[in-house]
Amino acid sequence: MVLSMKRWVGHIAVVTGASSGIGAGIAKKLVEEGMIVVGLARRKERIDELANNLGEKKKQFYSLKCDISHEQDILDAFEWITKKIGPLYVLVNSAGCFRNDSLTDGKTENMKQVVDTNLIGLTICCREAIRIMKENNIAGHIININSILGQHIPRDVINVSMYCPTKFAVRAVTETLRLELIHQDSPIKTTNICPGATETEISLKALKVGGYAHLFPENKMLLPEDVADAVTYALSTPPQVQIKELTLKPLTEKF
């Protein structure tokens, strides 16, 4: 199998949650690989900061304010991208939301916010990206950045509200999309990437408020760049090869 990113050079990739962490790492990596990247996030000033750090490659990057928990924001963003830049070839869903709350007595607003961001917003992004790819006869690629907590929940992980349920659901969404696209004879690929503990704002917040340091040693986590490398690996495969799911874990992760 020959791995190459050449077929994506000069084409558009959309990365959600691009203001920090894994999303920012992926956006930077795809720009370095020659793609035109549109970073979506609520904190536009943070995406602008990322753009300013890209040097000469800044012209390959666009920052766009978008709250993934609001459908109209998503629809407006994808319409703007298509009209102003062109149709996307790659979508990487990296936006995520975590709330330190329980299911047994937690706040409904926290549950809804996590579901709207991690699951509903992600699914709407997939739908809109696939629609654009089909309209333009693009053999594109949808990559959902999931979590090891979408495969297995350690017994000590509590008070994470709907985080784990939504991550299990994202795995199901990705597989459902894969099967739908196969039945439609579509060349569009889907990949579910499940990183273990990674140095991001969400992970560090979880460590601080949840007391999970024994499970996720802070100084031995994956880096966002490691997940970005996994994304380019999936994208680098030839047309007949589909990486259905990819799991990354820190060497020392204890579950």
Score class of each variant (00 low, 15 high):
1 M>A: 09
16 T>C: 05
30 L>R: 05
31 V>Q: 03
35 M>K: 07
36 I>G: 03
37 V>S: 01
41 A>W: 01
46 R>E: 12
49 E>C: 10
52 N>E: 11
53 N>I: 08
55 G>N: 05
57 K>M: 12
61 F>R: 03
62 Y>D: 06
76 D>P: 00
76 D>N: 15
83 K>T: 09
85 I>G: 04
97 C>R: 14
98 F>P: 06
101 D>W: 01
106 G>C: 10
110 N>C: 09
113 Q>F: 06
116 D>Q: 04
121 G>T: 05
122 L>D: 00
129 A>G: 03
132 I>R: 06
132 I>C: 10
137 N>I: 07
138 I>N: 05
143 I>H: 00
148 I>E: 00
149 L>V: 09
152 H>S: 13
156 D>Q: 14
156 D>G: 12
169 A>Q: 00
170 V>R: 02
171 R>C: 13
172 A>Q: 09
175 E>P: 13
177 L>D: 02
177 L>A: 11
181 L>Y: 04
182 I>W: 11
188 I>D: 03
189 K>D: 02
192 N>W: 06
194 C>T: 10
203 S>D: 13
205 K>Q: 15
205 K>E: 15
208 K>C: 07
209 V>Q: 08
219 N>E: 12
226 D>M: 08
226 D>H: 13
234 A>K: 03
242 Q>C: 12
246 L>K: 10
249 K>H: 12
253 E>M: 13
255 F>H: 13
